Simulated scan of single mutants.
Amino acid sequence: MYKATIFVTLKESVLDPQGVAVKGSLHTMGYSEVSDVRIGKRLEVSLDASSQAAAEEAVTLMCQKLFSNPVIEDFRFELEEV
């Protein structure tokens, strides 16, 4: 069994309106040292796979087909055997 921790973030070239709003709130709260905020998603997926390579392939396909929008988002993941 494997556990994948997946991180999906907007590409650097894509404006992040949520991040801009959070940055503004942080500045209002007195955290003027914050220069940028980017909002993303974190997912955890447990899967049965015959090998680490099979798990990596499955998670990559999941990310490409469902968890991320490849036009505006990037993804990366960490895989551990549990």
Rank of each mutant, 00 (worst) to 15 (best):
V82P: 07
R38L: 00
A58S: 00
Q18T: 06
G30S: 01
A49Q: 01
I72R: 08
K11N: 09
A54K: 12
Y31S: 04
K3I: 10
E33H: 11
E44I: 06
V37L: 02
T9G: 13
G19S: 08
E44T: 10
S25V: 08
S25H: 07
V20W: 09
F67G: 02
G24C: 09
S32G: 15
G30W: 12
A21W: 03
L15F: 07
K65A: 08
E12K: 01
S13V: 10
Y2W: 12
V59N: 03
G40D: 13
G19P: 03
M29G: 08
D16K: 02
A58F: 06
S46T: 13
A21F: 07
G30D: 04
L10R: 04
E81M: 12
E81F: 03
G19Q: 11
S25C: 09
L26V: 03
V82N: 08
D74S: 13
S25N: 02
D74A: 09
T5G: 05
A4N: 03
A4G: 12
Q64A: 07
D48F: 14
Y2E: 03
M29K: 11
S35G: 13
I39F: 14
K65M: 06
E12M: 00
E80R: 10
L26P: 00
E73Q: 14
T9M: 05
S68Q: 00
T9K: 14
F77G: 12
R38F: 00
Q64P: 01
Y31A: 04
S35P: 05
Q18N: 07
